[in-house]
């Protein structure tokens, strides 16, 4: 269903996100118009988002279904994994291994990548990043983190 009628799906997505924000805003004080609380403005905006989502949904109902969409699932997983792994390792392992991991993981997202090329790219880009950021700019991030020094 998703992807066949884009407005319909977009409408549903906006309604869901709007509802989540309504839920969050209701947990906050609403305040008075003079001194609005933290929940006042978000609640109004979330309401507008739900309204717009509903309009999109209605518009989508009248659309013919579109062709199915292509999703690069393997690439999707790897591309989203790369920054996550960097975040998880940069403080523990240090900048050098974290950069290498980002490049290595994301390189395999492309079906055109071969193992050798990935390795070459990892080494090349890691060296380049270290030279630019650590040596050239003196970025205060440890190259090798505490997990590696025993």
């Amino acid at each position: 269903m998703i992807g066949r009628r884009k407005d319909l799906s977009a409408g549903i997505l906006f309604i869901v996100i709007g509802a989540l924000f309504v839920y969050g805003a209701l947990g906050q004080e609403l305040g008075t118009p003079i001194r609005m609380g933290p929940g006042f403005f978000p609640l109004i905006l979330a309401g507008v988002l739900i309204l717009l989502g509903a309009l999109l949904f209605l518009q989508g109902l009248r659309q013919p279904s579109a062709e199915p969409m292509v999703v690069p699932w393997w690439g999707l997983v790897l591309i989203l994994l790369a920054p996550t792994v960097f975040g998880l390792t940069v403080q523990g392992l240090g900048l050098l291994p974290a950069v290498a991991l980002v490049v290595l993981i994301s390189a395999f997202a492309s079906s055109r990548m071969s193992a050798w090329l990935a390795l070459l790219l990892t080494i090349g880009l890691t060296v380049f990043c270290i030279l630019v950021f650590s040596v050239g700019l003196g970025l205060p991030i440890r190259l090798l983190g505490p997990w590696l020094s025993l």
Partner: peptide, 29 residues
Amino acid sequence: RRHLTAAATILGLSMGGALAQDYPTGTVS
């Protein structure tokens, strides 16, 4: 100086257990 600093950082890390009286042997953050 930057090159030296980077080198010193790596050295400082590998000598993690250096004695307190030698402090500091690496970059202080």
